[in-house]
Design a binder for these strands. Structure first.
Lengths: 136, 136
DNA sequence: TTATTACCCTATCGATTTAATAGAGTAAGC
DNA sequence: GCTTACTCTATTAAATCGATAGGGTAATAA
């Protein structure tokens, strides 16, 4: 299940991408337009800024804005920042790999075999989509 | 993230599919072989039996066994029983559809658009795999 | 320089879910 | 009729999630 953090993050990014210019947009405006708890959104935008996806400007006329062009922001990046691993099990994760405690042998593990396919197909979707593709 | 319930369920099913005959296998044997808490496994196997994937036999020489041939058990069925919805958001789920509270319009929702693609590609993987494909 | 605006950070909290455990009950077979 | 092994209910500890509260700080305009 997609977390609300990811859901809200995606909506906020799309909203920013849909802006005409790259002028800062206030948190309150995004929250209002997308029906998101403002405080919760604050923490999400903060994460996105720390990761380098967003820039921010303080003071009057401040807010958040995209640093790169939407077409240059692949969904793989966004999803990993917001949701974490794309794989459903750590033992098939590219960026967050962990060995299973129980499983003695990955090569012969049925779960591993299936989830590897799921990871690959999901990854392909995220690689084929940039933020620009999400803007209506 | 895949729940342990699903993970254990998949391993148990694969173990049963790998048996030579279709003779009942005791819970304790499956639990031991797959490194699973026996009590937890009990509840999982019970679910699988109630859904019609497994049969059970009580008393001495009893246990659980597959009702159908592994090649006739698609992963879509197994995953829906164990993990629930395949979609990451209810608004793109085929079997567990729910409208989003916040979202005013699905057609123009960026999250909807992206998750629809993910659902489709994941579904294709599960449709292309039967339990027989998981046996090493 | 000063007031305001709006981002920044920490802490907390209730609700829910997950994984596991305990213990008693019941049906089948020898 | 006794053992075996499945069946069911209840409980619990831990983790996570979503949300909220409240104050701090930096940048900007006047």
């Amino acid at each position: 299940m997609l977390s609300k953090k990811t859901k809200y993050g995606l909506k906020a990014l799309t909203f920013l991408a849909a802006q005409k210019g790259r002028a800062p947009v206030q948190i309150s405006e995004i929250a209002k337009h997308e029906n998101i708890s403002q405080k919760f959104l604050e923490s999400i935008l903060l994460t996105l800024r720390k990761t380098g996806l967003l820039g921010s400007k303080k003071g009057k006329g401040g807010g958040y804005y995209l640093i790169k062009e939407p077409k240059d922001i692949p969904m793989t990046t966004v999803m990993r920042v917001l949701e974490g691993p794309i794989a459903m099990v750590p033992c098939v994760s590219l960026n967050f790999y962990e060995k299973c405690e129980d499983c003695p042998d990955e090569a012969s593990c049925s779960v591993h075999k299936l989830m590897l396919q799921v990871r690959d197909s999901t990854l392909e979707v995220f690689r084929n989509n940039t933020l620009a593709d999400l803007v209506p």
